[in-house]
Every structure is written in C-alpha cells, then in structure tokens.
Simulated scan of single mutants.
Amino acid sequence: MIEKKRMVAMDIFAQNDRISNMELWTLMFVYMMGSLLTLPIGYAAGHDSWISAIIGTIAALGINWIYVLLCHKYPRKSLVEIAQILLGPWIGKMVGILYTWYSFYLGAYTLLNFTDITGAVLLPRTPTVIVGITMIILVTWTASKGIEVISRCALILFLFVVISTVLGSILLVPDMEPKNILPVLESGWNPILKGAGQIATIPLGETIVFGMLIPYVNQMAFVKKTVITVIGVTGLLLLLTFFVNIFVLGEIASKQLFPSYTSVMYIAVGDFFERIEPLVFTVWIFNGFTKLTICLLVSALALSQTIGSRDYRFYLIPLGLLLLELSLILHPNQLDLIAYIKDIWPLFSLPFLIFVPLILLIISFLKRKTLKSQN
C-alpha cells in the first residue's frame, strides 16, 4: 500500500514537472554559486588556496559520481525511494528523514548567511527577521510552482552570474599582482587539504540534494554527463575566483568575511565606472534565492516521499516557517556562523554526501550480483 502511494505521488509530480538536462545543468550551477561567492571557504592555505580548489574539485567529482551512478541505476527514483527499495520500508524511511533534515538544515544556514550578508552590506538598519520573512515568502511561493519554474528562472540567472564573474575578473586585471601567489606550498599540505575538504563538501558537494530532483529530468541517459560537467565547470570558475582574489588581495584574502565582494570594491575604470559591487551583490541575492528554494523544495519532497504523502506542496509553508525560526537561533553573529561552516559543517556533511550514498551503491551492486548468480 505504501509503495502504491509512493508511485502515485511520483506520477502526479511527473505530470507537472519535467526539466531538460540543460535546465538541470544551469540549476545546479546557480545553486552552487550561491555559496561559492558568498562564503570565505577554502582559504585555509592563504595564497596556496588555489591548490585547494583543484583538489576539492577532483574530490567533488568523485562525491557526485556516487549518487549520480545510483540514480542512473534506478531511473525515475529519488534517493529516498532508492533507499526504501534497497533497505526496506523502515530503514528507508530513516534515510528519508535524514535527507529531509539535511536539506532543511542546509536551507536554514543558507537563509542565515543571506540575511547576515544583506544586513552587513545592503540593509544595515533593517531587522534581520524582516529580511528573512520576505525571502521565505518568495521562496515558498516559488517552490510551490515546481522544479520546472525554478529551473527556468535559473536559466535567466545563469547569464548574469557568468557575465558578472567574467567581467569583474577582467576589470580587476589592473589591480592584480601575480607575485602574490608565491611562494608555492609555503604553508604545507595540511591547510591545503583542509581547504580542499571545505570546497568539496560545501559549494560542490551540497549538490547531493539533486538526488531528489534527478527523477524529473526528461532524458536520464545524459544525467551523468550533465552533473560531472557542471561540477567541473564550476570548479574551474572557483579556481578563477581564487586566483583573482589572491592576486588582488594577497594574504588578506583569507581574512575577509566576503573575499569576492572585497575584491570587487577595487574595480575603478577612470572616474565614471566604479562602485559596482551593488550590482554584483544583486546577482548574489538571486543565487542565494535559488539555493534556498531548492533546499525547501527538496526537504518537502523528501518528507512527503518518506511518509507516503501525495503532495509535497502541503508541507512547504510549515517547513518554511520552521526554517525561518531555526535560522534566527542558529548563531549569534556572522563570525560564529563562518567558524561553524569552516570547521564543523564539512564533518557534519560526510554521512549525507558519501557514507549513505556509497552504502546504497554497494548494496545495489551486491543485490544485482546475487540475482545474477541465482539466475
């Protein structure tokens, strides 16, 4: 009976929501950029942080390959549904609760980071709760429209993200000092690997939530290529961002709350083209909006599939209100938030990003091998 309800729910979602591989690509790209440019992660090694970006990207490719291969083996099934197939209904439901919590918790941190940045940079006199309420209302409404609408919004935002990043890098060329990158490996490998771990688990590894959305892609045969290429391209853009920030800021890049924003403040072309950071910040707002919408949507989907509900939209408003409340009590200030994200979040993410998907993948191989031997 539970299996039947789950299949009915999936059929209802499938009729209303279908996205292409290009839409999945751009949606993942904009989602990752929501953290990539607004968090000072990966700078543990100072001017050697570009090495962390390379290693972190390679590790992220491996992390993403695990859950993509799992979804490829079980087409039209989400991570929660795959867990119930492989582990049985009860343990599978526990996995569903875990991923509901992960996406919900990630959404709370995304909202907290957004409100803190907005308060520090754009609206210093506006109460944080007002900014949070406004964002939650918009995010809940957008999530209720489904993944197709969100992905089309991401297609538009994609152009602004790429143009602003590339244009900003070009305009900063006069302020760059390539010698800031020397000497190489001055700090040793420990801080480099620490930074790589942050990069692999925060901007590039948090795409595990798309394991709930891959079933909505209309051509499953190309999903593996789509996910791997978007991780690779985002990693290259991350590497470019690290080079720009290190060349412009030098050693102080690792000490900034918002390194990319600080670098943009250096842009000045003559006496007529300067102080463009508000325009860049606007792009970042939409990046954070997209990421928060995905987190809320995935948490509602995971919860509805875990309990066998027919419509995830029923849970969007209560989850959105709870997410807002959690974001208000998580950390007292931005410094405490950044410290937690740098030191604790990578370790907290490991079970969700690696251990659970890897266990599911191993069990799927063992079951298939057992079936072949029986036949």
Rank of each mutant, 00 (worst) to 15 (best):
M1W: 11
K4I: 11
V8Y: 13
F13M: 14
D17V: 10
S20Y: 13
M22D: 10
M22Y: 13
M32E: 11
A44W: 02
H47M: 03
T57I: 06
W65K: 06
Y67F: 15
P75M: 11
K77T: 00
S78R: 00
L79E: 00
L79R: 00
E81V: 01
I91G: 01
K93M: 08
I97L: 15
S103Y: 09
V121M: 15
G132R: 04
I137E: 05
I137T: 05
W141S: 05
S144L: 09
I156P: 02
F160K: 10
V166E: 08
L167W: 14
L167N: 02
L171H: 02
V184P: 02
Q198H: 02
I202C: 08
T207V: 14
I208W: 08
I208A: 05
F210E: 08
L213C: 02
M220Q: 14
K224Y: 07
V230R: 04
V233S: 07
V248L: 03
E251K: 13
S260R: 06
Y261A: 05
G270A: 12
R275W: 05
F281A: 15
T282K: 08
W284C: 03
F289I: 12
T290S: 13
L296A: 06
L296F: 10
S299E: 08
A300M: 03
L301D: 01
Q305K: 06
P318L: 09
L322W: 09
P332S: 15
D336L: 12
I341F: 05
I341C: 05
K342E: 15
P346W: 11
S349G: 07
I354G: 09
V356W: 12
R368I: 02
